[in-house]
């Protein structure tokens, strides 16, 4: 996608990306359980490396960012900065109930409630914490998205169009008696 030119070099890069997505994990204010479950994914029982998924520490090497926890006010700007460092195309997974919607921490005075209000999110995973198999499924879903996006030549096709502005004088369906 982001690779200039066409033909073989671009196809090679997107093939490699789909075969081996590298992920980085950012704990933006959760309770650690989601992070522990991600590490459990690397272990002999779940072993995500058989899918070519590698966990890397540096965001500059990553394709997929997994954000755990609801961002705290102090972490939000840092999360944004980490996200900005990831090269395009990048995908974000909001892990767990508190990454998706705030979970039990929703409305606390020191949190932003959801990852979505700081960075765009592509995949949400429910559960508190999600099981390792659900985390693996989320990453696999991300690879599917990546494949579709490559076919469409970018992420834009997925973005919802804003609703058309109401025509003045015309009643909306809700108002029609």
């Amino acid at each position: 996608m982001a690779v200039p030119g066409n033909g073989i070099s671009r196809r090679l890069v997107s093939w490699a990306r789909i075969k081996s997505p590298w992920i980085t994990v950012y704990n933006s204010g959760g309770c650690n359980a989601c992070d522990i479950e991600i590490i459990a994914c690397l272990m002999p029982r779940f072993d995500v490396e058989r899918f070519g998924i590698l966990v890397r520490g540096s965001p500059r090497h990553a394709d997929i960012l997994i954000v755990t926890g609801t961002p705290t006010l102090k972490q939000a700007s840092r999360l944004r900065r980490v996200w900005e460092q990831i090269p395009e195309p990048k995908y974000v997974i909001a892990l767990g109930a508190c990454g998706s919607s705030g979970g039990v921490f929703r409305g606390l005075y020191q949190v932003v409630d959801r990852v979505e209000s700081v960075i765009p999110v592509d995949v949400y995973v429910a559960g508190c914490p999600p099981r390792p198999d659900e985390i693996i499924n989320a990453v696999v879903r991300c690879i599917d998205l990546l494949r579709e996006d490559t076919a469409h030549g970018g992420k834009e096709w997925r973005q919802k169009k804003p609703l058309p502005a109401p025509v003045p004088g015309e009643k909306s369906p809700a108002e029609v008696p």
Partner: peptide, 29 residues
């Protein structure tokens, strides 16, 4: 202090039934 969420304050506003799940999530381990 990066992960400060304000759990103690929230615990004061929830009753005993609702506060237990919140306190479990102080730490995932």
């Amino acid at each position: 202090s990066y992960n400060h969420r304000g759990i103690e304050k929230a615990a004061e506003q929830r009753n005993f039934i609702r506060v237990l799940p919140l306190l479990e999530r102080v730490c995932g381990i």
